[in-house]
Simulated assay, not measured.
Amino acid sequence: MTHIVLCCNQGMSTSILVKKMREAATKQGIEVAIDAYPISEIEDKAPDAAVILLGPQVRFELGRVKKLFPNVPAEAVSPQDFGLARGENVLKRAFELIGE
């Protein structure tokens, strides 16, 4: 199963987006695991991630994330999609990054 990891400061602000992404996946019949964690826990929580998405507030961590997980696509979520909790857009982008 594809594992999408979202990270933000505390793992809280991404919870709404995760819910919307899960709803979009269910609607589309996609089996996926989507989890949100604080950026401070990324080393422990993301080793099995297919893709890592960062909240806009921690986009400055992208370089470090790419060094930690060089074989995992990583990107910051667009501020518009994040702020409006556009789960369908973010889910679509995650699969584009994975190459599916």
Rank of each mutant, 00 (worst) to 15 (best):
L6P: 09
F82M: 03
E61P: 00
Q57W: 00
K45M: 10
E41D: 14
T14D: 13
V65Q: 05
I39A: 02
P38T: 10
E43D: 09
L53Y: 07
M21T: 07
I34W: 08
E31Y: 13
F60S: 06
G11I: 05
V90H: 02
E23V: 06
N9V: 14
K66S: 07
I42L: 14
E31L: 12
G99H: 12
T2L: 07
L91R: 08
G11V: 01
T26F: 13
G87E: 05
L97E: 10
V5E: 03
I16L: 15
L91I: 11
I39K: 00
N9T: 15
L62F: 00
A33R: 15
L62P: 01
Q28I: 09
A85I: 09
L91M: 06
N89A: 15
R93F: 06
I98H: 13
P70C: 09
R93P: 07
K66R: 14
A25M: 14
L91C: 11
S15H: 11
Y37H: 12
I42G: 07
A94I: 08
V32W: 01
M1W: 04
A33M: 12
M1Q: 05
K92D: 06
A49H: 07
S78G: 11
I34D: 05
E31V: 13
C8F: 10
P38W: 07
G55W: 03
I16A: 15
R22K: 15
I39D: 03
L68K: 01
K19W: 11
I98A: 05
P47V: 04
S13E: 11
G83W: 03
C7P: 07
I4M: 06
P56N: 05
C8Y: 11
G63Y: 00
K92P: 00
V90G: 04
V32G: 04
G87R: 05
M1F: 01
A74W: 06
A36I: 05
N71A: 13
S15M: 15
K20L: 07
L84P: 00
Q10H: 13
I34G: 09
Q80S: 12
E75I: 06
C7G: 13
A94T: 09
Q57I: 08
E100P: 12
E23C: 04
D81I: 01
C7E: 12
E75Q: 14
G83Q: 07
Q57C: 03
A49V: 04
T2W: 07
P56L: 05
L53M: 12
A76V: 03
K66D: 04
V90F: 01
L84Q: 07
I4A: 05
L17R: 08
I39C: 00
R86F: 06
E75F: 02
V90A: 10
E88G: 03
F69T: 02
S13L: 08
R93E: 13
A46F: 02
L91K: 08
G99N: 07
L54V: 02
K20Q: 15
A33N: 13
T14S: 14
N71C: 03
V58R: 00
Q28Y: 05
L54D: 04
A50F: 01
Q57K: 02
E88W: 01
E100G: 14
A36K: 10
V90Q: 03
